[in-house]
């Protein structure tokens, strides 16, 4: 079977991807949130495996992670919650987390489990390109997992080409120099960056993340990119409204 992410990227539309932290607001909300997101036509989901020290995240995701860990979320429990997810959900699912929990679980055991569940890819911001290529690429491939790399406005053209070559699927284009959740709207600088990358004719499409929070930012981000990822804004919505009003949030985006 071909990877669900790759099939999804073939569809003729701008993709909406949603990030949420597993185990938040309540420990066992994971499956319900995923099902509701699919029901509301979300194209792809990043399931956040919470980490005690999320270096690349702003206060919103930090707090949801702390909360999720307090609720009792663990790697094993997340895998357990997801074990039947493919009976009800068919959109691409990605696990996003930091490398240490994966390392402690065992990189191969982790990948194997993802494969069994039907996870399509991983985003591990602090697993650097060179370490991935020398130590782990073969394992990811063995289990059919795409490893999604990040680029930022400061990433050099040369490095972007290097990452493009190493990538399979899409490139996660971080919208600005910032941790998650801290930017209000996009300016000229973002537009220039989006256009610079678009003009590079990369083999992988790009999906933009960080700072997308509403219809306007979604539209700006997807002008040149294939899709966009919303994280902190969705978590804020869950914090304020619980998990029963997911449709309200998604319907306002597009």
């Amino acid at each position: 079977m071909s990877n669900r992410i790759k099939s999804k990227l073939q569809e003729d539309k701008k993709l909406l991807s949603i990030y949420f932290t597993a185990g938040y607001p309540s420990l066992n909300d994971t499956v319900q949130i995923i099902q509701d997101l699919e029901k509301n036509d979300v194209d792809m989901i990043e399931i956040g495996l919470p980490f005690s020290d999320p270096l690349a995240d702003g206060p919103t995701i930090q707090e949801s992670s702390t909360h999720a860990l307090k609720n009792g979320m663990t790697t094993e429990l997340l895998f357990d919650q997801l074990k039947d997810i493919r009976k009800s959900v068919s959109i691409p699912l990605i696990i996003m987390g930091y490398f240490n929990p994966m390392l402690q679980y065992g990189v191969e055991a982790f990948c194997k489990k993802c494969h069994e569940i039907g996870i399509d890819g991983l985003i591990m911001p602090d697993l650097p390109l060179d370490v991935y290529q020398s130590d782990y690429e073969a394992i990811f491939k063995k289990y059919g997992l795409l490893n999604i790399f990040l680029i930022t406005p400061q990433t050099s053209d040369q490095r972007i080409h290097q990452i493009d070559k190493a990538s399979d699927g899409f490139i996660y284009m971080v919208s600005s120099a910032s941790v998650t959740g801290s930017k209000s709207g996009f300016g000229q600088e973002q537009e220039n960056y989006f256009e610079r990358v678009a003009a590079m004719n990369l083999k992988n499409t790009q999906i933009v993340g960080f700072g997308i929070k509403d219809a306007e930012t979604f539209k700006q981000a997807t002008k040149t990119a294939k899709g966009a990822i919303i994280g902190s804004a969705f978590i804020k919505h869950l914090t304020a409204n619980g998990i029963t009003k997911i449709a309200d949030f998604i319907n306002k985006i597009r």
Binding site: F51, S52, D53, L55, L69, T74, T75, E76, Y98, F99, N100, P101, M102, L103, Q104, Y105, D126
Partner: peptide, 22 residues
């Protein structure tokens, strides 16, 4: 500690079995 990743380096680290830094 056990081998893990903290603040960008692989080193001995106090952590839970699940890899959360204690």
């Amino acid at each position: 500690g056990k081998v893990g990743i903290i603040h960008g380096c692989k080193t001995m680290l106090m952590q839970t079995p699940d890899g959360q830094i204690t």
